[in-house]
Nucleic acid binder design. Structure first.
Lengths: 352, 352
DNA sequence: TTTGGCACTCGAGGTGCATGAGTGCTAAAA
DNA sequence: TTTTAGCACTCATGCACCTCGAGTGCCAAA
């Protein structure tokens, strides 16, 4: 898209104005608020052309123009400048990000809360994608007859566990034997490559437990392992969207919150963005999806901005916000970037 | 409150009508919809008296009457009849309540989801109150140098755990020793009576670990135990409130969702209801709070209906809904009662 | 005590009109 | 060729005004 300088300037001015006033911007007010060296009539012509290019649109004939999705896209891709936060803005965020937290999930929740508060939008955090990580330990602890706790320790120090039922008459010793046998066989393997077959056959060779008993335990252990890489999503600040003029129509707000409440959808979508980006070999610090680019119901007026945090070298997850597409992108991006940095710092602190 | 029969009848009819139509009900429409043997003028007189008694109120002069909080209270306390659900209603709920779930939290979430779907309101579930339960086991598992998992097993088979940091150079054996020593001392005690002092002094006598190392581990174990009885709350279906006419004003919806998002508040409040009820020696299957009786901001137009589920003989928690005070109380109560029964069944199934 | 009747209230919803911020287009100026 | 001034046109918004109807309270008769 080869826009001449003036067109760029006009588009940028319109986005800036619209984002702050939430009113369709017309040629006159544009002249008033910015120091263009040309007249409003000229701007009108420029605006008409930008509209032909699909970068602007009119809500109705006698109103000003607003940016289209494509217009926003052009804006974020090549017009916008992302500045660093000011010291006071940084301080404000730092005060909210607590350092006294020892678990990844808590770090993420805390960061997401902060993000929602500072942006005023919905924030979301995805748990780390663990499929590629390795199983380090697997313990099965007897809780009481018939009940055990399967503890799965993954590389990068992530711990997951699950209460499972086991045969009533299984003794502590027997359970211990099974547990060690299984652990010996699966330790060091990546989550992807562990299947029930490998787990079952290998374990059976070693222990002298009756097969019927063994099977149940193995099965439970297997499901515990498999569910360790379940993608959790944490959404925060939905109610904040109700304060935005963009959702002053109740029906919009309803659609939005309705979709957000199906949190598997959001998680899946963000995961998808991430995967696509990786497939395309892009390695941006942040990812943006605007309006219709998002194929989720009720999110036509929203944008996603997400970024990636790291857990060691190979494991990553996402955190970001869902806001109205009419937002101050550069500001929000700086905020997200800063929070991301804080998360990474905090995670490193925990895992030395 | 000694109402004569006709007044009762009138109040009941008004509540019933208002709840279904969401329109202030006037004397005429009341006559039309119900078969009163008197004229509208008589009803007008009755209604005027009911208003004097504070059971009805007028939104404005030329409109019909709506029940006041006190009116609703009278209705639920002595007018309403709670019927059993029909078979098909039961079936519908039973289909959603999954039986294949093995953890209490999952049972509760599943039940709350069901409740929100069938009522169309917000549902909430509180985790069981564990303060009074006994500590059965305490294990500290080494995850990697410097990091351990504290597993707390409580009576009634509830398991809680927490990842903690420990001194880097602590060996597996040392940790095991500490772990067993602590366990021997706290096992069988109730969560309330365990203090850091008792835990620390008793453990120190037994093990031969340097005190500085010991302290950190003990402290972490202690916090893990203490946080085991943290009250978790699960809220579901907030977005459904946006579809209700009661919250068609955006500002109301905003206030409501704003308060609900502070979930400690809701949890605290429900816990309080429960405590009060117990203090007063009441042992109802359900508890109702209407409108202004709830001292939370933005919930003036809401009612809480909660009920208690049991985990064994001594441990309990709550589940219920938050809906508009203009709701079909008897229907919702039946639904909640039925779901409660299902929860109790499911819990029993897990804990034999 | 009940009822019919009547005057009154007031919100909801419809119509009409003025306002003003916007537009596109054209013809003249640069 | 590009820019600009001017002009006719559009249309959402807000206000004033009106009507309608469902409600009320009260009074006098049954």
């Amino acid at each position: 898209m080869a826009l001449d300088d003036r067109k760029k300037q006009v588009l940028q001015a319109i986005v800036d104005d619209y984002v702050t006033t939430y009113e369709p911007v017309g040629s006159k007010s544009l002249i008033e608020r910015h120091d263009f060296t040309v007249s409003s009539a000229t701007l009108r012509n420029e605006m008409a052309e930008l509209e032909k290019l699909g970068l602007l649109e009119k809500p109705h004939t006698s109103a000003g123009r607003i940016p289209s999705d494509k217009g926003y896209r052009e804006y974020v891709d090549s017009l916008m400048r992302v500045d660093d936060l000011t010291e006071s803005e940084k301080k404000e965020i730092e005060e909210r990000i607590s350092e006294s937290v020892d678990e990844v999930t808590d770090i993420l929740k805390n960061a997401a809360d902060t993000l929602s508060e500072t942006t005023g939008f919905v924030s979301l955090a995805l748990s780390p994608r663990l499929q590629g990580s390795y199983l380090m330990q697997l313990k099965i602890l007897m809780i009481e007859p018939g009940k055990a706790l399967v503890v799965v320790v993954l590389s990068a120090g992530v711990v997951k566990d699950k209460v499972v039922r086991i045969p009533n008459f299984l003794t502590n010793e027997q359970l211990y034997k099974i547990s060690s046998a299984v652990e010996r066989h699966v330790a060091g393997k990546s989550l992807d490559e562990i299947t029930y077959i490998t787990l079952a056959t290998s374990a059976k060779e070693e222990s002298e437990i009756p097969e019927s008993m063994l099977n149940q335990v193995l099965y439970e252990a297997y499901t515990a392992i498999k569910q360790a890489d379940r993608l959790d999503v944490y959404l925060q600040g939905e109610h904040r969207m109700l304060s935005l003029p963009d959702f002053s129509e109740l029906s919009r707000a309803r659609d939005l919150l309705g979709t957000l409440s199906k949190d598997g959808m959001v998680a899946g979508y963000v995961n998808e963005i991430e995967r696509t980006a990786r497939d395309e070999g892009r390695d941006d610090t942040y990812m943006i999806r605007i309006g219709q680019e998002i194929a989720l119901e009720g999110l036509d007026d929203c944008s996603f901005i997400t970024t990636t945090y790291k857990l060691g070298d190979t494991i990553s997850g996402n955190i970001g916000i869902i806001g109205p597409k009419r937002m101050d992108y550069s500001k929000v991006i700086s905020q997200i970037n800063f929070v991301r940095k804080k998360i990474n710092d905090n995670i490193k602190r925990i895992y030395e």
